[in-house]
């Protein structure tokens, strides 16, 4: 039985179709990603899974239960990491973990050692008695994730877990999440960072305007919707657009962005050599592997962070 089963899942706010009839399954132990730009419907989908947003139509089962009619029972097995930290600023760091566990009806005899273990996991042992407001952004994020683990959830919902963190903090977090995945926790991650999705997700859906536009593993999506390599050329913002037609035949396809041209090709270096040989003189060049960013660009014609 899938952990999550969504069929024709729909949420409308007035005339806005935040989530527009999507279907997906998530298997136990899987790391599943919801990818898309802001406003694609990712967070709304997450809230519906937790039963804190009521769907307009469609069906949704989480561990075989409808979160709308069995919210408390469904959430007993969920860990929720919201997009913006909502730690209890009137309690100290360790008390945040303990009190949160109390909301699940867990006893102090279980929660006291668990809180210490989770503080260590989140590398916050020294901050146990600290006020939440005195913690750095990365620390708050890690405390929020530790808090979501206090009930030992089988499914962890992470809504943009690393947005706003510096690179070092992001890598610490990814490491922690990877360990949970190894321990068998089902991860559901929304993100608009492609590298994050590639790092964390076994399988993902790409969402745009509330709909699913593609589904597959990161490697699979790149293979299907992009080429192996990408050649990025910058000619200056004035000239990029003028050269689109001249350069099109050097690649399988070409995407013009305001600041650069993306040439999709199996061999970026070879394409660059041919471009140069024909007398074009880009200001800067970059050959790189295709990423999910490119997949999204190809699928929607827009870049993810706009």
């Amino acid at each position: 039985m899938p952990v999550i089963e969504a069929r024709a899942l729909t949420k409308t706010y007035g005339d806005v179709h935040a989530v527009d009839g999507i279907d997906f399954d998530v298997a136990s132990g899987e790391s599943f990603g919801l990818l898309g730009p802001n406003g694609a419907g990712k967070s709304t989908t997450m809230r519906m899974i937790g039963g804190t947003s009521l769907r307009t139509s469609g069906t949704l089962l989480v561990n075989g239960l409808d979160p709308e009619t069995h919210g408390p029972e469904v959430r007993a097995n969920l860990g929720v990491v919201p997009q913006t930290d909502n730690l209890d600023t009137e309690l100290r760091a360790r008390d945040n973990l303990i009190m949160y566990g109390r909301y699940f009806g867990l006893p102090y005899s279980y929660l006291r050692p668990k809180a210490d273990e989770l503080l260590a996991f989140a590398q916050l042992t020294e901050k146990a008695g600290e006020k939440v407001d005195n913690l750095s952004g990365g620390m708050k994020r890690r405390l929020t994730i530790a808090r979501a683990l206090v009930n030992e959830p089988t499914v962890l919902l992470l809504d943009e877990p690393t947005t706003g963190l510096d690179p070092q903090a992001r890598h610490i977090l990814w490491d922690r999440l990877f360990r949970l995945k190894e321990a068998g926790v089902t991860l559901i991650v929304t993100t608009h960072f492609m590298d994050e999705a590639e790092q964390l997700c076994d399988r993902l859906i790409v969402m745009d305007h509330g709909k699913i536009v593609a589904e597959g593993s990161p490697a699979d999506l790149i293979r299907r919707f992009s080429t192996r390599e990408v050649l990025e050329l910058r000619f200056g913002s004035e000239r990029n657009a003028e050269l689109v037609d001249d350069l099109r035949h050097y690649a399988d396809s070409l995407e013009p962005l305001p600041d650069r041209l993306l040439l999709y090709t199996e061999d970026g270096e070879a394409a660059l050599a041919r471009v140069r040989a024909d007398g074009h003189t880009p200001m800067t060049t970059l050959v790189r592997r295709s990423s999910l960013e490119d997949v999204f660009l190809r699928l929607t014609g827009r870049s993810l962070i706009d």
Binding site: T52, R75, P82, D88, T89, F104, G105
Partner: peptide
């Protein structure tokens, strides 16, 4: 603003 209830309602609490 404090989003306190958002946190509470992510648990078993209804």
């Amino acid at each position: 603003f404090a989003k306190l209830y958002e946190g509470m309602l992510a648990t078993s609490l209804g």
